[in-house]
Structure formats: C-alpha cells, structure tokens
Design a protein around this nucleic acid. Structure first.
Lengths: 384, 384
DNA sequence: GTAGTTAGTTTGGATACTACACAAACAAAT
DNA sequence: ATTTGTTTGTGTAGTATCCAAACTAACTAC
C-alpha cells in the first residue's frame, strides 16, 4: 500500500473537503485508476453493510466483479480491520464451504452531535452498524454564539475521549443553513452566522468532521439505517420549527444556496396567523411543535392538512413516494399523519398520489444522531 | 481499438438501455478500467464542447489530466472525426504556438422529434452544436395510437434519410410519462399506453434512440444549449396542459414512477374551475394555453399567480434559483412572469425567494427539439 | 473412493493513468 | 545572429487495476 490507508484518521482541519467520497455535488473531475479501485472497494463494503455477512463468491455475484477482484478487495478490508471472517456457512449444499465476511461493527466509531433540540445538545458514540454505544446530553440554557459552540465542542471532545476504538469521523446535524464544507451559514436560534463548525471541531478532535443540516442528516439516516431500502425520500422534521431533508436517488439535495428543505416559512395560508418571521401564514405557524402542543385533536388535523397542502406540489414535481415524519410522537399522531396524507392525495393526480406513503421515522429520537453517523459513513467509506 | 468505436451507430434495438452514458439513475455498478477512460474521454469532449476551441495543453489544465493523457484522448477523438485541428493560436506570448482543437459540428447528426404540440408533430436534423440543419412538420389531424406512431416514425425516417453525415442517435421529447428505457407509459392525448416508442424507432432507423418527457428534454436543452451554464433548473412548459422538467446538479429528476414534473393536476384552488380530470382547481385550469388565450391581461396575471403559488413549496424544498418558462410567447408575457415571480417571493422566505429568477426559454419554439438533441448528446457522448 | 461442485487464489495479459524526459517552435534579450 | 527561456506536444518506463483462465482446496453424493 503506497500511502496511508484511506480510512486512517488523519486529523484534517477542513471537514468534508477532501475525504474520498465527499465530492457528491462537486463538478465532475478527472478519473484515475485509483478511483476505480475506490469505487469497487466501497461497492464491496456497501454490499456487506447492507446485505449482512456474505462470502467472497457471494460478493462477486452481486457486484459482478470477478472472484479474484472481490478477494483482493476483501483482503484489503480485512487488513484494515473493517471486515472479519465469521467462519464457514453451515447451510450449504455441495462444494467447498463459503467463508462468510462480516462488517466489524466497532472497527471504527463515530462521534455524532445533534444540535436540533432547542433545549439541549445531544451527542453519541455510534458504531458502524448504527448502534449507540454511549451518549451525552447537555442543557443549552439559552447559550448562543461562542458559548454554544464551546458547549457543542465539549460534548464531542468528551465522547471522543471515551472512544475505545479508532474514530472514523465526527458527524453533526445542525439546524439552519449549512454549506458542504461544514460552515454554518445561518442558524438564528444558535446565533451562528458563518461559523466554521467543521474547522472548529477538527481542531479539537483529530478526525474528519462532516456537518449537515439536521433534517438532511436525518433523511440520510432514515435511508441508510432505517426502514425499507429506498433511494429517495423526504423527511419532515417537526420541532421548534419545521424543516425537511430531501434525498433523491441516494444523493442529498442541497440547493443553490444550500438552503434546500427550508420549508418552514412557505406561506400556506395567507389568511393565517402571523409568524415570527414577519409574514403571515407560514407553515411553521400551523405545524411547529409548540403550536401543535397547544392544539387539540382538530388543531393537529388542521396542521396535518396544511403540511399536506404544502407538500402536494413538491410530491408532484418530484414524483415522490416516501415521506417520513420526525418529531415528538405525541404530536405526530395518526390523525396528523392521515390528514397530511389525505391532503396530498386530494391535491395530486392519482398516478402520483396513490403511491405516496407517509410514515413515522423508524429511528425515533435518535434520527439526527444516527443520520450524522450515516453522513460520516457515507463520506468516509462510500457506504450509501 | 479492441471493439467497435463507442460512437459508431450500432442500431441497437433497445433505446437508452445500453449506451455508455445512459445509466444515470441506475444503481451503482462495478467500475472497470474502461470506465476511467470513458469518463476522461467525455470530460475532454465536454470541455471542448463548452469552452470552445482549446489546445491540448489547455485541456490538460482544465481537466487536471496530464498533457500526455489529453493528447492520447485527443488523438482518439481526432481519429473518430469528432474533433479537428483548427491551426495554431495567434494571440500568444512566448513558447511553441498551441494547436487548437475544436468540435466538428457536423461530425455526427441527431434526428429529433417533438411530439408536444397537440396539432402537429415536428422533427429536425440537428448537428452537434445544436444547430438545426433541416426540419419537417406534419399536421396530426387528430391521429392517435397506431396512426400517430406511424406518423412520428415517418417523420424520423424521412429526416434520417436526409442526413448527409452519420447519425449519433434519435432523440424524442414526448408528452406523458416516459420510462428511462423509452417506453411511453401514459400519453393520454396520443392514446399511447405502454408504447415502446424507442424500440419502434430503433427498428426503423439504425441508430440508438433516446426518449424523454417533452418538458424534461426541454430542461436538458435549456441547460446544455441555452442560457447561462447553471447545473439546476426547473422548466415549466405551458401548452395544451402544463408540465415541468427538473434538472438538479446536472441530473434529470425522473421520480419514483417516472412521473416527475407532472404538476398540471396539482390542485391550486379548491374553489376553482372543474378540470377535465374530474377534480376541481387543478393548475391546468388556470395556466394551460387554451385557458390563457381566452383570458385578458388580468386573467393571465391570475394564472401567473397560481403558478407561483404552486411552485413556492417546490422552490423552497429544493432551494431552486432558476425557473424557465416555455410556451407561446404571447401568453407568457411580462405580466404573467411578474405575477408568478411575485407569488413565489411572497410565499417563500427571503433567503430563498430573493435569488429566484424566472425567465423565458432561450431556445424558443425549438426547445423540445434541441432538448431531445441534448439528450442524445448526453447519453451517447457524456456531454452534459 | 471417485466424480462433481463450489470457494478462493494465482498467474498472465490488457488497459490507462502518471512522471519524467525530450524534441519542436517560438519570443525576447543580448 | 545567437543565446536563453518558455510552452507545446510526444515518447518511454513504471504502476495500478481489472479480467480471464487455470489452479488448489474442501466438501457432498453416490
């Protein structure tokens, strides 16, 4: 191996800027033979990640690489400790028994941070299988700006210190508008404007850092670690405000100014209630958590309807199938869900609306934490 | 060269299924060394396509390949006749003068077909630079199903016969829902349900066939041959109905059932006019061409507003910047455009709405024809 | 115990890049 | 007129990667 293994923590100062797989939306660049290798390596790793323990021959069959190639790649992954041999398969017919290869869940760990809760920051130590090994939380107590940054950093450093195995990276889901390099362009609630969170954390922890919007991260997590293996999904996160994360064909949609998913201030009812932003009838005035908490069952239904009305054009334009709700379970109840789905179906053509499904996040409260872990897994290992 | 040159017309029966670059939304497959070559080849070709005549050294600088590599690739493109030497550069400082390489516009031709007009089918012979060399049109006279298929095929065969140079492929922009293999799943106006247009045309013309929804094709064309070089855009096509084409980061969004962009039957006004589809207040009842033609200036403004209201959630969810209108210029006038833009700005947050721009298609009436050409250019040469 | 089957490894060949060196062609300075 | 320096484009050696095919290994079935 010529240069250091690509998964070794290198303590890069700029998060997300130069990881092997962190160039999703970037303009297409040249290809070198090594890219072929990297692609196939992640293809093998992804196949193991998604389809459980498999033999080298199984891998060859599902990747369409030759057995020789998968064998070579498997050897590399074994040497890095990412994969291990799990003994031979028992229930097999004739022929030499297959040696099963499985992901080593704690070969690398991820420190993840969820800044989406208005009241407290949460952090976790997550293994490669998406299992939370340890967690911390810290009340925010209204901290903003520098002070909030320090609190977040403390949490991460604390958990990084508690990690008994090498770190794959640090993943953060933050409210607000986040650029691909990990700079928080705008997070009004935290008083952050142009804060280079990625660089800040990379300075404190010798591992690559990846930052994304909270809803975007949750969407990635839902797709990679959650329910059925779809390739596209819209996740709507109801909290202090309302935000969404959109993944199309496995790619996160970030938008022109990196503000994709910011649907909280779409006007859904020009005759509605005034919003904190100064306008009238923003979606947030109907479905944000504080508003829903004050509402009765009928009020929650009305909120669901408003959400559905806002999503109907999006569902039509993208021909979306899967919509996932994330947030307090007592608020996102069946009547809310049904009202939203009904509104979408009423307002889209049947060829589209008939296939739409709305469901609750399968990751629950940890969706942003696990989504941030998935972000790191994707950016560092190409598993997505 | 081991096997036939990748650009030679091979008369594939299945359109779009096995062209080198026709696997955009497909699940990621293995990479082989040849993919590296293909990628870099199209990178060089794309650079010439977009940035005009360039020397081999210029290409090396912008692609970040070495001069040796670009030289090799250029030799291949020269041998295929896609590129030619245009003599040495005059306005140069010291050093050996650069030999400029330029695209040969008529090295290959594309037969393109526009089925979007309700009254007549249009077809054209388009060169690699997007110039229309010849065109045909045929009144539809209400033809449907088999009869419409024959008329379309005739037009294409006619133009293919008129082509004085080898065909790169056939491109079609069709109304309705089109799957990536070129099967028209649903085109009610033409009476097509599950018609394998691609196979039908490939049988008549010995060249690869690519079919897309009309608005989708137009969106690709606008991006590749039209105005400023953006990577994302929503094109709204107003005709007999209303449809849209969406390109994000250079990739066409097709949607779960390949119906992305079908926004004509989004309900925008529950108290509005009944629609032919049986519902009330679909977008089409406010902004389809026949409706706008009957309306006065105020009516067109109202239509624009309705369009803006439908697009506001889409613009927010995707953080879109560029929206292009396509259709009859007398209907899509300034008051329509302004009303749509105002509605979007009023209904989205300023961080998103302030950057949104709506403009008319820069390709005019030929946008679907040229879009279909761009589709072929992209799928066959990777130029996009 | 032999034949058949499946798993995994080894070897040779093809491809496609990089790095480096070199020749060609010109401008500017002397 | 000659030298120097710069840029272009090509040629060569080396490395990386994959595939194809042959091979070894291990097991079942009869």
């Amino acid at each position: 191996m010529a240069n250091g293994s690509p998964t070794a923590p290198t303590g890069r100062t700029s998060g997300g800027g130069n990881s092997p797989f962190a160039r999703r939306g970037a303009p297409r660049r040249k290809a070198v033979p090594g890219d072929t290798r990297l692609h196939n390596r992640s293809l093998v790793l992804r196949t193991i990640f998604r389809s459980g323990p498999l033999s080298r021959a199984d891998l060859a069959r599902s990747t369409h690489l030759t057995r020789a190639a998968t064998s070579e790649l498997a050897a590399e992954l074994l040497a890095e400790g990412l994969v291990e041999e799990l003994g031979t398969r028992s229930d097999q017919g004739v022929g030499k028994p297959a040696t099963l290869l499985g992901l080593v869940p704690d070969a690398r760990l991820t420190v993840t941070l969820d800044l989406s809760d208005d009241a407290r920051f949460r952090a976790a130590l997550v293994d490669l299988g998406g299992k939370v090994l340890d967690r911390r939380a810290a009340a925010r107590d209204g901290r903003r700006a520098e002070s909030a940054l320090e609190l977040a950093t403390e949490l991460c450093v604390d958990l990084a210190g508690a990690a008994a195995r090498p770190l794959l990276g640090v993943g953060v889901g933050s409210p607000g508008v986040v650029d691909p390099a990990g700079i928080i362009l705008e997070a009004p609630n935290l008083g952050w404007h142009g804060v280079d969170l990625s660089a800040h954390l990379a300075q404190a922890i010798p591992a690559p850092v990846h930052v994304a919007n909270d809803a975007n991260a949750a969407a990635l997590g839902e797709l990679g670690l959650g329910g059925p293996a779809e390739r596209s999904l819209l996740l709507v996160k109801v909290g202090h405000g309302v935000g969404a994360g959109l993944v199309l064909d496995g790619h996160l949609v970030v938008g022109d100014r990196f503000a994709a998913g910011e649907i909280g201030h779409v006007v859904v009812d020009p005759d509605g209630a005034p919003c904190a932003c100064g306008r009238i009838g923003c979606l947030e005035t109907a479905v944000a958590a504080p508003r829903l908490r004050r509402a009765d069952d009928r009020g929650r239904q009305a909120g669901g309807r408003r959400l559905g009305e806002a999503l109907a054009p999006v569902v039509s334009a993208l021909n979306l199938r899967e919509i996932v709700l994330s947030g307090p379970l007592d608020l996102l109840d069946e009547s809310f869900r049904a009202a939203a789905l009904d509104a979408i179906r009423e307002r889209t053509m049947p060829a589209v609306g008939d296939y739409v499904d709305i469901r609750l996040s399968s990751l629950g409260e940890d969706d942003v934490l696990l989504g941030a872990a998935m972000l790191v897994l994707d950016r560092e290992l190409g598993v997505a």
